[in-house]
Simulated assay, not measured.
Amino acid sequence: MTRPDADSAAQAHMDFTRSLSYGDYLHLDTLKAAHRPVTAAHDEHLFIAVHHVSEVWLELIVRELTLAMDQLGAGITDAPLKGLTRVVRAQEQLTQAWEVLKTMTPADYLQFRSAFGQASGFQSAAYRMVDILLGNRTPVLLQPFAHQPEVHARLDAALHAPSVYDQTLRLLAARGLTVPPEVLGRDLSTPAASHPAVLEAWLTVYRDPTTYWDVYELAEKLLDVEDNFRRWRFNHFTTVQRTIGMKGGSGGTSGAGYLQRALGVVLFPELWEVRTSL
């Protein structure tokens, strides 16, 4: 008798009448059913696929940022590094997705662009949540979600809660570094503005990283996150520019012009300024 080949594909589990299959576990029928182009244009399939995948990565980033922020709020500095590293890797996937979309030419896009009306990534709740958690606080940007009360409520709650940078500054204060009350008690619905005392606190950390290694490492990881966020924004801008030029966006913004202005947003100002002051 010959022994069964342990490495043969025939040894795989074949009967899924009483257990979850790969497709069952991932609800692939539901996932594929959501891929519903509204035109016969070939490249609309690409357009939908890239945006579906991006939404999944954005939701993962929200989840990881939220956990990291909870940990920072509890005074934990090592565990958040793992979550923030995962955020950075997910951001890399998001940025790379634009490269796939760039294979679509202007003529390809014009075949279906008018079919989805005023729908736009500007209305992505997951993207807006990432934006808010990272500290880009602009209340007017919640208005497109007014027709979705639960979504709007979640975004509004995040808008009035500490950002990941706010949690980090509170951690600095807990370590005995000087972070002024007007910074710790600021209106959280507004973006963080550079403050000389906060810069001085970071200078203390960066001049003595051995003593403050955990917050020093945290600061560098936060810069990785913002650096990647900027790269994603830049790739978004160039993708739009090469596809529709300077035409207005479908959601009502100026399109590439709006995206170009967004490139100037700075989320963690003192972490960039500390390099000049060292």
Rank of each mutant, 00 (worst) to 15 (best):
Arg63Asn: 10
Arg170Tyr: 02
Ala201Val: 05
Leu278Thr: 05
Ala174Met: 05
Lys102Cys: 13
Leu278Ser: 08
Ala34His: 08
Ala68Tyr: 09
Leu110Asp: 12
Arg186Asp: 12
Arg86His: 09
His27Phe: 01
Thr66Ser: 13
Arg175Leu: 10
Ala68Asn: 11
Val215Ala: 07
Ala6Gly: 12
Val88Glu: 12
Leu134Ile: 15
Ala9Phe: 11
Arg113Cys: 09
Pro139Glu: 03
Leu172Ser: 03
His195Arg: 07
Leu65Thr: 08
Leu169Cys: 08
Thr178Ile: 09
Asp224Met: 03
Phe268Gly: 05
Tyr127Ile: 08
Ile76Arg: 12
Ala256Phe: 00
Thr204Asn: 15
Ala33Tyr: 03
Trp202Thr: 07
Asp5Cys: 06
Gly135His: 02
Val240Asp: 05
Asp108Gly: 05
Thr238Arg: 04
Gly245Pro: 10
Pro162Arg: 03
Leu263Tyr: 07
Val88Lys: 07
His160Arg: 10
Gly176Ala: 06
Glu64Asp: 15
Phe122Gln: 13
Gly257Met: 12
Leu58Thr: 04
Ala10Tyr: 14
Tyr25Ala: 11
Glu182Phe: 01
Pro139Arg: 04
Leu20Gly: 09
Ala174Gly: 10
Val225His: 02
Leu134Trp: 02
Glu64Thr: 04
Trp98Gly: 07
His52Thr: 02
Ala33His: 13
Ala219Glu: 05
Arg233Ala: 09
Glu220Leu: 11
